[in-house]
Structure formats: C-alpha cells, structure tokens
C-alpha cells in the first residue's frame, strides 16, 4: 500500500479528513523548506504538496506567482526540490509528499530520470498542472512502474466522460479545483462543490481533495464536510509571505493547527 493510500485509509477509519497544505519549495528561502515541511506535519497536516518553481506559472494567481519568484531568486530547480524531499525523508518516513508543478522542468530532466529520482528520494505522488491525461500516457506509465501516484485535477468544467477517463488513470487521490480561474481565487460556492464532489464519487472510489478557495477555518470546515481532503495553497503562502524569519515556523504551525481544528 502506498503512503498516500495508507494515510487516507487511516484517516477514514478514524472518520477524519485530510489536511493538505501547499508550499512552494524554496519560498521564502531554500533553507526553510524542510523545516516548514516538518512544522506542517507536527501541527496537523496529513499530506504535503510541494510546489516545484517554474518561470511561467500560468495556472497560478498572484500569491503563488510571488512565492515562485521568491524561490527563483535562489535558482531553486527540480533537482534541488528532490534533494529537499530526500532530506525531509531522513526524519519522516510516513507523511506522503506530492510534487506539484509544470511540465517543462520535468521535460528538461527527462521523464524517466525524474521519476527514478523522485522514487528514490521518497516522493509519493506527482501532479503536473499542464500534463492533462491526454498528453501524459507515457508519463503515467513511468510513474506507475515506479509505484508513484499520478494525481490529476478535476474542474467545475470537467464533464462526466472526463471524470470517468481521468479517475481511471489517477491513483492516490484526485484533486477537485473548486473554482474556475487560477489559484487564490475568491467566492467559493459550497453547495456547488458538494454536488460536484458527489458526481465524482459516483464514478470513483478515490479520495477527493478540494482546493482553490479554502481561505480560513470556516471555508476549511465547510469543504471538509463534503470532501475527503482540503488543499490549502494561497492562504498558506500568504502566511509565509507575511512572516519574518523569527516567526515563520510558529505562524505556519498556528495556521495549520487552526485549520486542523476546524476540520476535525
């Protein structure tokens, strides 16, 4: 059983929902990333989504773009991100790590080489925003051969046929982006999210994570009531952005604990 499957199985047996924070590797500085990952786990996170910085993050709103730019000041690349996961794994062999990013850094390294290395250092799942299932047959095959979970997005515009096609290729969990638009958008419609999640559930047994629009304890609680996991990206990055070196870890711990409390 993969780390992701084991995590969701354990949560389910305790009737709990997964908390999945997103941070961009190298933000605000590469030296903080591994410490941030541990802090996230200690304060109640179940899975870590670690963003791979890319120069042209087309699907991201201004908050995550800024995180990317801060990381790129230090030239953080895919190889560095894999090293960070390796370092994280020296102290934590249990918490799943999902890499999230864009296709080109992987194309530059080579899909095969990337997956081999990711598997060695202890990555559990990979979500590449601009590898839709139609274009990632080969990549998914390589991931599966190395027992990594291909994570895919589903959106409010994905129809029943696409939900079926995507959930057949995905494993670990699926990630429903609850809003049209880019990351960090506003105005979450929780009734609609509930209906869409139910539609996905009719076609798949995979756990469903919901992200884009989870901003505080109230939205976290509302989303957790209909989903198996909540993904918190832009809000987490804002906390990092507004912190200084002295209170970075404590602020992130506090936000994570609040979210944990809200969804339990």
């Amino acid at each position: 059983m993969s780390r992701i499957q084991a995590t969701f199985a354990a949560l389910k047996s305790h009737h709990k929902k997964a908390l999945i924070p997103y941070i961009t590797a190298g933000d605000p500085h590469p030296k903080h990333t591994v410490a941030l990952m541990h802090a996230l786990v200690e304060s109640g996170s179940d899975v870590i989504e670690l963003g791979v910085p890319f120069s042209d993050p087309m699907a991201d709103g201004p908050v995550i773009q800024r995180a990317t730019e801060r990381a790129l000041v230090h030239h953080v690349g895919l190889r560095d991100v894999l090293e960070m996961v390796k370092e994280f794994r020296q102290q934590d062999d249990k918490t799943p790590v999902v890499l999230m990013g864009y296709a080109n850094p992987i194309e530059a390294m080579g899909q095969q080489q990337f997956v081999e290395r990711a598997s060695e250092v202890g990555v559990d799942g990979v979500l590449i925003v601009d590898y839709p299932p139609e274009e990632s047959e080969t990549f998914v095959g390589i991931l599966q051969a190395h027992h990594l979970d291909p994570i895919f997005l589903l959106s409010p515009t994905s129809d029943a046929a696409r939900i079926s096609m995507i959930t057949k290729q995905a494993s670990g969990f699926v990630y429903y982006v609850s809003l049209k638009g880019v990351t960090g958008s506003q105005n979450l419609n929780i009734v609609e999210v509930g209906e869409r999640v139910a539609a996905i559930r009719r076609q798949s047994d995979l756990p469903i994570g919901v992200g884009f629009g989870v901003r505080d304890a109230a939205t976290a609680k509302a989303v957790a009531a209909v989903a198996d996991a909540i993904v918190v990206g832009s809000r987490m990055i804002q906390e990092i952005e507004s912190s200084d070196e002295a209170n970075l870890l404590s602020n992130v711990r506090q936000l994570t604990s609040e979210l944990r409390k809200a969804i339990d």
Binding site: M58, A59, P132, E135, S155, I166
Partner: peptide
Amino acid sequence: GGIFVAETLIEA
C-alpha cells in the same frame, strides 16, 4: 504541438 494545459482550460 498538442494540448498541454490545466484541466480548467480543457473544456474551453
């Protein structure tokens, strides 16, 4: 070529 975009753009 191809269609390398996020799921949110596929339908459009």
